[in-house]
């Protein structure tokens, strides 16, 4: 197991280096400059500013400088968005709200989704099943920003249950964005669990469990549930992606000072080091999620246990 994780860490490192390289050159190709009102500066002034951030160096030198810094954990300093602040500090200071709504959204989505899927499978072809299917279709086909606006309008403005936007009331502020983010994981989990539960409930070992005298709930929870979970883990990765991309939009809509909101702004003002830093941060997050997913597989399904099985 330790060896496997070690191997995976090396791969992760290579993946990250590739992503960093790719993003770096992609940004350099794009038109535009991080220096605000660059047109108004005289060539001399411009040269001074560029020299300060190392932008006067030839591209390969800039690249190796950046990668070398990255190796030491230095993501550089913000050029214009946060005026010279350390990028790592910027990201860390912004992480709190993002992590909170992301985690809450994911938790709410998967737990409710599993519940919906289970109930739908156990009450197959009843109105409960159809209802849960409709919820799943809505959750998958309607984008999170539509939900976000609807939540703001109904729950926020009309019924005045939660703050419409901003990050001022602690947990209460996080409720609506979390719900908006939860819709996709909820719908995905519900669909997967329903399909898988129905298949598992028809399998031979469920009949054997019945033949042992197990009751309906024992069969559903002791025998079927764990086996139905396996394919859900596969979509945990894509779900995490949906939380990330969702957060870009949702944080904008709810005016939450999170990473997503800051990322979008940094792109608009061409702040190279912030864009790079955030991209790398998101990449690390996703790669770690994928590793966790692979390890979870083994925890839930003994057939895929990584250390060869014969413990």
């Amino acid at each position: 197991m330790a060896r496997y994780i070690g191997k995976r860490l090396i791969y992760m490192f290579i993946t990250l280096a590739l992503i960093a390289t790719f993003t770096f050159f992609l940004m350099k190709i794009l038109p535009g400059s991080p220096i605000a009102s660059a047109d108004k500066l005289s060539p001399e002034q411009r040269a001074v500013v560029e020299a300060r951030y190392g932008l006067d160096q030839p591209l390969p030198v800039q690249y190796f400088d950046y990668m070398f810094g990255l190796l030491q954990g230095d993501l550089g300093i913000s050029i214009n968005q946060f005026k010279g602040a350390n990028v790592t500090d910027v990201i860390l200071s912004r992480m709190g709200p993002s992590a909170q709504i992301g985690f809450q959204g994911m938790l709410l989505g998967t737990v409710l989704g599993i519940l919906f899927g289970m109930v739908a499978a156990l009450r197959q072809n009843t109105w409960v099943d159809y209802g849960s299917t409709i919820v799943a279709i809505i959750g998958i086909s309607i984008p999170s920003f539509v939900f976000a606006s609807m939540l703001q309008y109904w729950l926020g403005l009309k019924w005045d249950l939660f703050p419409v936007a901003l990050w001022k009331d602690g947990f209460m502020s996080s409720v609506l964005p979390s719900i908006a983010l939860a819709m996709f994981p909820l719908a995905t989990a519900a669909r997967f669990i329903r399909t898988e539960m129905i298949e598992v409930l028809g399998s031979d070992y469920i009949t054997l469990a019945k033949a042992k005298g197990a009751s309906g709930s024992e069969i559903a929870f002791k025998h079927a549930f764990r086996n139905a979970l396996i394919p859900l883990i596969t979509v945990l990765g894509p779900m995490a992606v949906s939380i990330l991309t969702g957060s870009l939009v949702v944080e904008q809509i709810f005016a939450i000072p999170g990473i997503g909101e800051q990322f979008v702004k940094s792109i608009m003002v061409n702040d190279f080091s912030i864009i790079m830093g955030t991209t790398i941060f998101f990449s690390v997050f996703l790669i770690v999620v994928i590793l966790v997913v692979d390890i979870l597989y083994g925890v839930i399904d003994p057939r895929i246990r990584l250390s060869g099985g014969k413990s």
């Binding site: 070992y205 054997l208 033949a211 197990a214 025998h223 764990r226 839930i300 399904d301 057939r303």
Partner: peptide, 20 residues
């Protein structure tokens, strides 16, 4: 079931719960 009358199935490859 399982106490007075019990049953053995055809395919042993699928009649045991793989995650238990």
């Amino acid at each position: 079931r399982g106490k007075d009358i019990s049953m053995i199935f055809q395919d042993p490859m699928t009649s045991l719960n793989p995650t238990m």
